[in-house]
């Protein structure tokens, strides 16, 4: 039995060492969706709280593990020892101590928590805030800028150092709007308008994803968020507000005809070309394609936006995105090529 206990110790310490190694092996934070982020004021507040709690947690964990390890290493030597252990059944001071100490630690966690709650859920925001209406659909994101008359899908641009106010709408089921780098998530709930208010502080491209299970293609409901400089944003808004580009090449011209004649226009809007009425949900079931060519990704941000991927998507949406609402139209050959050329020309 003694040898077994020595083996236990040996394997035990090996395990501990391996865990420590693994923990430090996690230094790879080169990840676009990591949550220890500071892309906005909101994210900074959350991260600071996050780190505080992690430190407290680590301290408590260390205490527990050290005591346990000591207990095991010291008292397992008694195995086979005929002396009986002390019948120590209670110790009031000790018990009071380990009731009060955690309570104090919790107080150190709770107070900043409550302050951060109040801070991150403002009931008012400045009048000059840019409102972005986020509409979650199965399984793509629509972004409307009610003040600017812009609608995009899968990609949202915001300017740096401005108050951005996201209003979250869902037309079907519960989704969750999450850009890890810019702060926490909020559920997008039908019949209820949730909001996130934040001030982005870093320019760049960030990834977001639906975080609440929403059916078959939940994994394929991603989006991109671009934080521009003030000027960059202005230019982008101007470009998006412009009417769609007239197709120049022959293929693209032919593609425009196909777009109008094929059922594409039932669900998709290209301003001035197709799209009818929001009331009848005509032209609004799928993303607005007016400036489709300017976007970096497509189909719920699961692909880069290039002709090859677009063709693959149009050819068989169900195959690349299970449950996709977009029907297979049976386009192939030059028709497909021309349609792709047209859509990609909509810069």
């Amino acid at each position: 039995m003694r040898s077994v206990s020595r083996l236990n110790k040996f394997v035990g310490s090996g395990l501990l060492a391996a865990m420590v190694f693994a923990f430090f092996g996690c230094g790879n934070f080169n990840a676009p969706m990591q949550t220890f982020a500071s892309g906005s004021d909101l994210a900074k507040w959350i991260t600071s709280l996050y780190i505080q709690i992690t430190i407290w947690d680590s301290i408590v964990l260390a205490i527990v593990l050290i005591v346990l390890a000591l207990a095991i290493f010291v008292f397992s030597t008694r195995e086979g020892d005929p002396t009986e252990p002390h019948e120590h059944e209670s110790d009031l001071m000790l018990e009071l101590a380990w009731t009060i100490a955690p309570a104090l630690i919790l107080m150190f966690i709770t107070i900043p928590t409550v302050r951060t709650i109040m801070r991150t859920q403002p009931s008012k925001w400045p009048a000059n805030a840019i409102t972005v209406q986020v509409h979650a659909h199965q399984w793509w994101w629509e972004f409307d800028y009610p003040g600017l008359h812009i609608a995009t899908g899968d990609e949202v641009h915001i300017p740096i150092n401005r108050v951005i106010h996201f209003e979250l709408y869902s037309d079907d089921i519960i989704h969750s709007f999450w850009i890890p780098a810019l702060g926490g998530k909020r559920d997008v709930i039908p019949g209820q308008v949730n909001q996130i208010t934040l001030i982005p502080s870093v320019t760049g491209e960030f990834y977001g994803q639906c975080a609440e299970f929403c059916g078959l293609s939940h994994a394929n409901m991603r989006f991109r968020m671009v934080v521009d400089t003030a000027d960059g944003f202005k230019q982008w808004v101007a470009a998006q507000q412009a009417p769609p580009v007239e197709p120049q090449e022959a293929a693209a011209k032919n593609g425009e005809k196909i777009f109008k004649n094929a059922p594409c226009a039932i669900c998709h809007t290209v301003r001035g070309i197709s799209g009818f009425s929001k009331q009848y949900d005509y032209g609004f079931r799928g993303p607005d394609l007016t400036h489709f060519g300017s976007r970096g990704t497509l189909a719920g941000s699961i692909f880069d936006n290039n002709p090859k991927n677009l063709a693959m998507w149009i050819q068989d949406p169900e195959k690349v995105k299970p449950g996709a609402r977009m029907p297979t139209l049976g386009l192939r050959g030059t028709d497909l090529h021309d349609l792709v050329a047209y859509l990609e020309s909509l810069k």
């Binding site: 077994v4 206990s5 346990l68 207990a71 008292f75 008694r78 252990p85 120590h88």
Partner: peptide, 13 residues
Amino acid sequence: SWLATVWGGRLRF
């Protein structure tokens, strides 16, 4: 309390 139970015992693994 579990830790304190282990502490000082004659442990059998």
